[in-house]
Amino acid sequence: MTATVELAAVAKRYGGTRALDGIDLAAGAGITGLLGPNGAGKTTLLRIAATVLAPDAGRVRLLGLDPAQAGERVEIRRRLGYLPQEPGYHRGFTTFEFVDYIAILKELTDRRARHAEVRRVLAEVGLDAVARRKIRALSGGMRRRVALAQALLGRPDLLVLDEPTAGLDPEQRLRFRG
């Protein structure tokens, strides 16, 4: 069976700092978690798995495709949901407008279908009641859920989540794990 995420001898350096050195990983269907101390390279590895960072060396295959090839990279991104460790927000946007903006980047251009999808993911993370509230007026935990909502757009085949429960209250953590 083809692994969903497959890394072979992957290496990445930032100047003189070696973030990843000869990493091999094969993850299939289901949930795979990364555990390690701060600075171990978890975020670098997840950014490579999310196609936002290219490795210096090694081979990466995601959903059976090669992200180094421009065409295949776009196909991966169509089937990918990504929650970065520190996602940024257009703080002048409302919650709905922000998720709608990401939905457009994910090629959902039909207004009615896109808005229905935005409502779905906001309801999924329990934020439908604050859809019209400005992002800057939300708490840190709520903003984290907004970021999670955008990752769920389009029911992706591969979800790459970096610290998904950071900043969430205990109730929301339980809900997320459920």
Partner: peptide
């Protein structure tokens, strides 16, 4: 510059087009 740049990079819309 763009606060959502990382999310934009991971999205299928090409960065060049944006």
């Amino acid at each position: 510059i763009d606060p959502t740049h990382e999310l934009a990079v991971a999205a299928p819309m090409p960065g060049s087009r944006l």
